[in-house]
């Protein structure tokens, strides 16, 4: 898994590539938490490069969403591949996350 962070004036863009699974999810959680602790209140997570997610990865998404809601921030997801979107649907995550078709929509949302 690779994570790329771009800090912009209005939001932080985080692009994740590869597998978000039992072995990589802790690293992703750490990176996202560091951004939030650093004062970031709007994260756009570009999921276009995520080709696999398991419950360990979903756990991290939920932890971050809870955290963002508690600080009244925004955690916007975009570009989910169909297979990943299906896992979100099955888990009931599609209704508790802000999911956008692309980065542009996620910026406005």
């Amino acid at each position: 898994m690779n994570v790329k962070i771009t800090t912009l004036p209005d939001y932080t863009l985080i692009s994740v590539e590869g597998r978000v699974d039992t072995t990589t999810s802790a690293g992703l959680e750490k990176t996202l938490m560091e951004s939030i602790d650093g004062g970031c209140t709007k994260i756009i997570l570009d999921c276009s490069g995520i080709n696999y997610i398991s419950s360990s990865g979903l756990r991290v998404f939920l932890v971050i969403q809870k955290k963002m809601i508690s600080i009244k921030g925004h955690f916007n997801l975009c570009n989910l591949q169909p297979g990943i979107r299906e896992i979100f649907d099955i888990s009931g995550f599609s209704s508790i996350f802000s999911i956008f078709p692309d980065k542009e929509a996620a910026m406005i949302g």
């Binding site: 398991s54 419950s55 756990r59 969403q65 809870k66 009931g92 508790i96």
Partner: peptide
């Protein structure tokens, strides 16, 4: 979101 427990999805 606030009520959903962490984990238990596997």
């Amino acid at each position: 979101v606030e009520e959903r427990p962490i984990g238990g999805l596997g």
